[in-house]
Amino acid sequence: MKASEVKDLTPDQLQDQLLKLKKEQFNLRFQSASGQLEKTSRQKQVRRDIARIKTIQRQRATAQVKG
């Protein structure tokens, strides 16, 4: 997911996407611990997507407080 795609989402969509990614991250960790993980690069990608969403949420929150 690109940053430009994340910026276009509504706050509700961002929250839904964040929950979905956190569930996926948990499942990837579980698979990794049990030795069943095939695409190890997906862990890094999910972690960065979560960070992108949290960054956009934080930017919007601070913009509302200031403006």
Rank of each mutant, 00 (worst) to 15 (best):
R47W: 05
K23E: 13
L9R: 01
T55D: 06
F30Q: 08
L18A: 07
R29D: 12
T40A: 08
R29N: 15
S32L: 15
K20P: 00
R47G: 07
Q25F: 11
N27F: 08
T55I: 02
D49G: 04
L19N: 11
K23S: 08
Q43H: 03
L37D: 02
E5K: 07
F26C: 04
L28H: 02
P11D: 05
L37F: 05
N27T: 07
R52Y: 05
Q15W: 07
K54Y: 00
L37K: 04
I53R: 01
E38C: 06
Q36T: 12
R42F: 06
D49Q: 14
V46Y: 00
S41L: 14
V6N: 01
S41I: 15
Q31I: 01
T10H: 04
D49S: 15
K7M: 06
Q45D: 07
V46F: 01
D16S: 12
F26M: 08
K22V: 06
Q43T: 09
Q36K: 11
K39W: 08
S34D: 13
L18G: 03
A51H: 04
F26V: 08
G35K: 08
Q15G: 05
V6Y: 01
R42S: 00
R42K: 15
R52E: 05
L19A: 12
S41D: 12
R47E: 12
K20G: 05
L21M: 05
E38M: 13
I50C: 00
K54A: 05
L37V: 00
D12W: 09
A51F: 05
E24A: 04
Q43W: 06
L28D: 01
A33K: 15
R47V: 08
K44R: 12
L21R: 03
Q25P: 02
V46N: 00
S41M: 13
K20T: 07
Q17Y: 14
R42C: 03
G35E: 08
S34M: 14
G35M: 06
G35C: 06
K54D: 08
G35N: 07
D49L: 07
Q13K: 11
I53M: 06
Q15E: 11
V6M: 01
L18N: 03
E24V: 04
A33R: 13
S4C: 12
Q31T: 00
R52G: 02
D12Y: 07
L18I: 03
T10Q: 08
F30Y: 09
K44I: 14
L21W: 00
A33C: 07
L21Q: 02
V6G: 00
S41V: 08
K20M: 07
E38L: 10
L28Y: 01
L14G: 03
D8F: 09
F30P: 01
I53Q: 02
T40K: 12
S41H: 11
V46L: 01
T40H: 10
R29A: 11
S34F: 11
D8H: 15
K7Q: 08
Q15L: 10
L28E: 02
L9C: 03
D16M: 14
L19K: 15
A33W: 05
D16Q: 09
R52S: 10
I53H: 00
D12S: 14
Q15Y: 11
R42W: 03
K39A: 12
T10V: 10
Q15P: 02
F26Y: 12
N27G: 04
L19S: 14
A51D: 15
F30W: 11
F26P: 03
F26E: 14
R47F: 12
L14A: 05
K54H: 09
S32C: 08
L19Y: 12
L9V: 01
K23I: 15
K44N: 07
Q36R: 14
